[in-house]
Design a protein around this nucleic acid. Sequence first.
DNA 1: CACTAAATGGGCGATATGTCCACTTTTGCG
DNA 2: CGCAAAAGTGGACATATCGCCCATTTAGTG
Lengths: 203, 203
Amino acid sequence: MSSEVAPPRVSVERPRERADAARNRARVLAAAEKVFAEAGGADGVTMEEIARAAGVGRATLYRRYPDTTSIAQALLDEHESEIQAGILSGPPPLGMGAPPHERLAAFYRALVGLLERHLHLVLGAETGQARYRTGVYAFWRRHVEVLLEQAQAPKELADTLMAPLAPEVYRYQRQVRGLTPEQVAANLEYLSRRVLAGSPAER
Amino acid sequence: MSSEVAPPRVSVERPRERADAARNRARVLAAAEKVFAEAGGADGVTMEEIARAAGVGRATLYRRYPDTTSIAQALLDEHESEIQAGILSGPPPLGMGAPPHERLAAFYRALVGLLERHLHLVLGAETGQARYRTGVYAFWRRHVEVLLEQAQAPKELADTLMAPLAPEVYRYQRQVRGLTPEQVAANLEYLSRRVLAGSPAER
DNA sequence: CACTAAATGGGCGATATGTCCACTTTTGCG
DNA sequence: CGCAAAAGTGGACATATCGCCCATTTAGTG
């Protein structure tokens, strides 16, 4: 990040959000939450539909969000931040202090919980390519990378170990294969142990 | 598969494809191949665009394919069939005869090869949800399931072990993380050994 | 209380979709 | 060899969404 001549004022001098803007922001988010839940993802959800449900014009939506995925992303941010905080400064096994394979298992459990509670939002925000463009993916990825290093396993496995957390994979396991959230979490815990626990990698 | 009253004629009595239909089918597939390659996936590819590139009307496209993903799927079928044949009746380690973890590694290698050569088609055909609706996914899945059983590992891991083969994951590793196909394959081989080789699962 | 700037929402042109139907080509048959 | 039925084709049409523009409204400020 580069900074030009720093403005003399404190911080970035954001003009403060107007009252009606804040009100509409809240309306939009509440309406979008409902719309995504009903659609079960982002499939048929359009900007038009969210605008109608929120009782605002389409241009009001476009002012803040370029597309439906960024609205879902905004709704998710809050929940994802909680997990980030748990990783950075929470108690073990999610936070520091537990052995790598237990921390990975805890991380898996936390994200399975998120997927279970907000699958429609994650499908709306991180489907397909979009997943890898969100800032939060980089965070998850880095965390897994560190755990791999601590366990003396190749850190290039990070994306491989993240792949089962793609929302489409979770949806398929839950709705088509009929697994319970606990079963999914147990499988991932098994994976954690197999890959990170025991003898370090010989290769 | 169930059969009603079998028709007296040999086979299903398909009226045989007309010459102009066959010609246009070939044109469409050739044009679609090119269009997908240029777009690098299915992102901005429309039925209109493929029709224009093939020099046929849109209705001609819709007669055979309901959407762009099914066109990409048709183009992929051939290549995927080769791998299927290799699994069912080819030599080890892809075919029968090798230990499970080696067969899984060989399977991973075969699919990495497919992804490397035809990523744009796989992105066009199996992006997001569509991946789990293709017939071929069920085949891959079942194959991995059998290998898991043979290695006395929980067969519910099948989808988890398939997840890193999603085209978006491969694209990200190759184009964003800068891994080579060999590195991706090596990582997956490591995963195969860790999960399937050695002591059976205690749980 | 008036004034400025942010915020709003309806409307517009462009593009894609999926279906329909009149016309053309191929094929089977007398 | 020619003809009729059937299969195939392609352009047109109605509909929907997108992304943007701009006249109007509304909130905050001196």
